[in-house]
């Protein structure tokens, strides 16, 4: 055999590409609606060329060579974009492992009766495995990125600060308060206090499923921070069972203004601001 494995595959690259694309398309898991045939062809072609250029080199195991880096770059891009679009790991995996299958089937035909030389098949195996590991690493890390972004988005949208009256803000808290969320709540609330020059903030916890000593500590922190800014904080929406747990746990809320409902809190806020809400008396019509 005069040609090296790399050169041989280079010559047969068209056949490899076709069989590789077929493998990808035949896989049941492929979401055709997500990726067009042409796109698969384009991605595959680009990646195939970079892999062949690695195989043509003597040191194909060298992961620091410019050729390998080029292939890694393409692969990272594909893997990241697929993770973002919600592909399963299987679909992304088929992309890389399909290439191994395509290579070997082409080589088998090429060598006809004799077996594919062990060294050559090993070379392909090792390279594809290295690339596959890279694919999963990037796939998972871009998934993690998506999760992190969503987490921060959720905590952003789940803490709206509402201006209920001139100088009075309300902040309904839905869900559990952990330390990360408390930080977001505090930040939003204090920023809004500065922005609207409000002197009273009502923290409504009717949407908080349970108050343990940790949650209570977070609430106390928020109240203290509000006071440092020069505003007063009222906690409302304390359900009877929450009042019970607070006392049973021995949490001291004596320094905190608490009210049963948002309506009560608003009434006491009006009193603090010396405002009065009255029913207008209808003038008798003559």
């Amino acid at each position: 055999m005069a040609l090296s494995i790399g050169q041989l595959l280079q010559k047969k690259s068209k056949t490899v590409l076709e069989s590789w694309i077929n493998i990808q398309l035949q896989d049941d898991g492929l979401k055709e609606e997500l990726l067009s045939n042409q796109e698969i062809r384009k991605q595959s072609e680009e990646f195939l060329h970079s892999v062949i250029s690695i195989l043509k080199k003597e040191d194909s195991q060298n992961t620091e060579s410019p050729e390998f880096e080029k292939a890694a770059e393409i692969l990272t891009e594909i893997s990241t974009s697929r993770a973002m679009q919600g592909y399963t790991p299987r679909e992304t995996g088929v992309f890389v492992f399909g290439l191994k299958e395509a290579f070997l089937s082409v080589l088998e035909k090429e060598f006809k009766d004799s077996l594919v030389p062990y060294a050559d098949s090993q070379k392909i195996n090792k390279l594809i495995d290295a690339l596959a590991i890279l694919t999963f690493e990037t796939f998972i890390s871009s998934r993690e990125e998506v999760i992190l972004r969503q987490t921060s988005e959720i905590s952003e949208i789940s803490t709206p600060v509402i201006r209920v009256w001139d100088g009075i803000l309300a902040l309904p808290i839905i869900g559990t308060l952990d330390s990360a969320r408390t930080q977001v709540v505090m930040e939003n609330l204090l920023m809004k206090i500065v922005e609207t020059e409000s002197t009273i903030a009502i923290l409504d916890i009717s949407g908080v499923p349970a108050v343990d000593s940790l949650v209570a500590q977070h609430l106390i922190k928020t109240v203290s921070a509000t006071r440092l800014m020069g505003a007063e904080c009222i906690i409302s929406g304390i359900r009877p069972e929450i009042a019970q747990t607070i006392v049973h746990l021995g949490i001291d809320l004596a320094n905190i203004n608490t009210k049963a409902s948002l309506a009560h809190a608003l009434r006491s806020a009006f009193m603090m601001l010396k405002l009065e809400v009255r029913k207008t008396v209808e003038k008798p019509k003559f």
């Binding site: 930040e187 500065v194 203290s224 921070a225 006071r227 440092l228």
Partner: peptide, 18 residues
């Protein structure tokens, strides 16, 4: 004391200085 910045207030609370 007036005009404390939100970030300063949060830090003071975390520091344990209300």
């Amino acid at each position: 004391v007036v005009g404390m910045q939100p970030a300063v207030a949060i830090t003071l609370i975390e520091l344990g200085l209300p």
